[in-house]
Amino acid sequence: MQRTPGLGVLSADATRLEVWGDPIAHSRSPQLHAAAYEVLGLDWSYGLRRVDESSFAAEFADLDDSWRGLSLTMPLKGVAFATASTRDRRAELTGAVNTLLLDPAGTRGFNTDVGGIVRALADDGISDVARARIVGAGATATSALVALSELGVEEVDVVARRPEAVTALTELGRRLGIAVRTASFTAGDHSAVPLTIAALPGDAPIADAAADALASAGGLLLDVVYGHWPTALSAAWERAGNPARSGLGMLLHQALLQVRIFRNGDPDAPLAREDESLQAMRRVLEEPPTA
Rank of each mutant, 00 (worst) to 15 (best):
R50Y: 10
P243F: 08
T140G: 13
W20G: 07
A255T: 05
V19Y: 01
A139I: 13
E171N: 13
L222H: 06
E164L: 08
V159W: 00
E238V: 05
S85Q: 15
E164Y: 01
P104F: 06
V51D: 04
L10F: 13
A179G: 13
L10M: 13
M74I: 14
A179C: 12
S85E: 15
G136A: 05
D52Y: 11
E154A: 13
G249E: 03
Q258Y: 13
V225P: 00
M1R: 09
T99K: 02
L40K: 06
A91M: 09
N264P: 03
D128L: 15
S45R: 07
R260F: 03
L172V: 01
D203C: 06
S246W: 07
T196V: 06
R16W: 10
E155T: 13
V166A: 02
E164D: 14
V159E: 12
R181Y: 12
P5T: 05
R239I: 04
E171L: 15
L7W: 11
V284F: 04
Y46W: 10
A255F: 04
I126F: 04
T107P: 10
W44R: 04
S55N: 11
V146P: 06
L7P: 05
N264I: 10
L72I: 09
A139V: 12
S55A: 15
G106M: 04
L278H: 11
